[in-house]
């Protein structure tokens, strides 16, 4: 890609006997939001730390905004913003003091650093709390200040490492809205997440990472299509009849999943209308009452499960 904001070729990083990155490839176009999706320990944070020059890769080629992260770390640092998993703020200082300090370290003139700090506080709804020490901030406020701190100089490339982990739903929505507004400004965003919904909501393209490699990438729709197209969901009134329903419904037995808590059975379908009509008829004839029958695209959860073939880890991650 000529217009790549991030290029990673065969990146490797080892900690002791754990291969955190094992020949990872990644290409992110300018001005796009790229989701890196994977369970704990897949290598997401290692990747972000390498991209943001905090960690040196053992091998491979890694370029951000057209510069090599090892040989031209200084140039990369001029062009990136980083929102790590843990707040990268001075907890003893106030919000405004933090933003001014980061502005000065980006070599803004004193006056510009002040103006910029005020703008960002305003924009992230923190104007009233600028003097308060960050250690007295709530989790959501801290996250927003952290995000503001990574935007002090409008970075070309922004890294968000699990930006909403530990936030309540409201905080999560706020962060999502901020990320969306950034993309309008032309910033390239690389976002890691364990939340499939988050990748689905925000990312133009998604790379699924497992054991330090990219095991699939594409748009959310492409990934979903790879899992085998549409699915039918049937919710029964009586969960005890799930077994019987699975036996009599006209779907191939492999690929059918059953969720007893939700009285739900789900199966891949090839021909949507035939499947729907067949299901309705079969249930009616057997006298099994259905609460809901619906056709849908697979969720990213199912995509993930399908790709990794690793059932229990996905549940942990999701």
């Amino acid at each position: 890609m000529a217009d790549a904001a991030i290029t990673v070729e065969g990146a490797r990083k080892r900690y002791g006997d754990k291969q955190a990155l094992d020949g990872l490839d990644l290409l992110v176009g300018r001005g796009t939001v790229h989701g890196v999706l994977g369970p704990n320990g897949a290598g997401k944070t290692t990747l972000v730390r390498i991209l943001s020059t905090l960690l040196r890769p053992d091998g491979g080629r890694v370029e951000v905004a057209g510069h090599d992260v090892v040989r031209e770390a200084g140039r990369v640092r001029l062009r990136i913003g980083l929102l790590g998993q843990h707040a990268a703020l001075d907890e003893e200082l106030g919000g405004r003091q933090n933003l001014e300090m980061f502005g000065r370290l980006h070599h803004l003139r004193a006056r510009h650093a002040r103006v910029r700090a005020d703008q960002l506080l305003e924009r992230f709804g923190l104007a009233d709390t600028g003097r308060k020490a960050v250690k007295r901030y709530s989790g959501g406020m801290r996250r927003r200040l952290d995000l503001a701190a990574s935007l002090v100089t409008d970075p070309e490339v922004l890294f968000l490492d699990e930006p909403t982990t530990g936030l309540d739903p409201r905080g999560r929505t706020e962060v999502w809205a901020s990320v969306r507004s950034l993309v309008g400004g032309g910033t390239t965003v690389l976002l890691t997440t364990q939340y499939l919904e988050e990748a689905d909501q925000l990312a133009d393209r998604i790379s699924v990472v497992d054991h330090g490699r990219v095991i699939a990438d594409g748009t959310a729709d492409e990934l979903k299509a790879r899992t085998g197209g549409d699915r039918i969901d049937v919710v029964l009134r009586d969960g005890g009849q799930l077994g019987a329903a699975v036996a009599l419904l006209p779907f191939p037995a492999e690929g059918v999943s059953v969720d007893t808590d939700r009285r739900l059975l789900s199966a891949p379908v090839t021909d949507r209308m035939t499947a729907l009509a067949g299901a309705v008829r079969a249930l009616e004839e057997a006298g099994i009452e259905a609460e809901d029958i619906a056709l849908r695209r697979p969720t990213l959860d199912e995509v993930f499960l399908h790709l990794t073939g690793d059932d229990h880890r996905v549940k942990e991650a999701a």
Partner: peptide, 16 residues
């Protein structure tokens, strides 16, 4: 503290 990570990812003099 996490703030060291931010310092180290910024275009500032290493030893500052």
């Amino acid at each position: 503290k996490g703030v060291i990570d931010r310092f180290r990812s910024m275009p500032m003099a290493n030893g500052a």
